[in-house]
Amino acid sequence: MLRENHPRSFWALLLLFVVFVLFLYGPTITITILSFQGPEGGLTFPMRGFGTSWFTQVFQAQSVGDIGGSFERSLILGAIVCLTTVIIAFMAGLAFRLRFKGSSILFYIVIASLIMPSIVISLGIGSLFELLGIERNWFSSGIGAHLTWTLPFGLLVMLAVFNRFDRRLEEAGRDLGASRFQVVMHVILPVVAPALVGVGLFGFTLSYDELARSSQAMGALNTLPLELQAMQTNATTPVIYALGTLTTAVSLVVIAVSLSLVLLLRARRARRSSI
């Protein structure tokens, strides 16, 4: 009988992988556990009792900061950035197929904002608004700052998607009497929809946890990562852990929603083919 024995290298690599996973998720797990400290508990182990009191405190007025407000702003900002990124990345992906004049220069200009240090871009946006005498706000300069981060990502994804897109599908659409707009709505958009869900997910999560690009661009009102950073410097209670647990939960929910969206699309196809 043949038996497959794993070579020694398998076990070495497995160990490396386990250590890596611990390193990746250890901090999150630690913080999640610590956020359930009892009311007498502190910032470090051991646990003194067990409870959810710190979670209720999150939403009460803090000595420093405004967690509820910044949380809400981050969610709205993330949603706006997500939607804007999806729309612009889709249209830019369509445009870049045409190899128009100056398209490669435009491409490098867009990608350049990925390479530049985030803090420099944030400072630049901050001082530009200062210079023009426009007040910085999370819903103006803030959105702009986040789009400098999410749009290049979205564009790169869409370029890869359209690179593989079979243009004969469009020709077939035209051949069957669809107008250019109908081709976009009935052929291109449905075919690339799963990729757009991905771009949206990217857009939301990149915006939701962005710190460096937010730092100089948000104006008076903080987003959640900024608020967390401010609290971290003078936090004395596990409330900051509770907040960390909550934001992690939000990220998980977003991922779960996206995945179920993709699964739903798949299920619809499967249901259609059940006959």
Binding site: R168, E171, A172, A178, H186, P190, A193
Partner: peptide
């Protein structure tokens, strides 16, 4: 036109593929 490798719309059922021109 019948395209090489057919260029059927991958997201539409057979019926919807055939009915596409009528839909448009």
């Amino acid at each position: 036109m019948m395209f090489q490798s057919y260029a059927l719309f991958p997201h539409l059922s057979v019926t919807d593929n055939v009915a596409f021109s009528l839909h448009m």
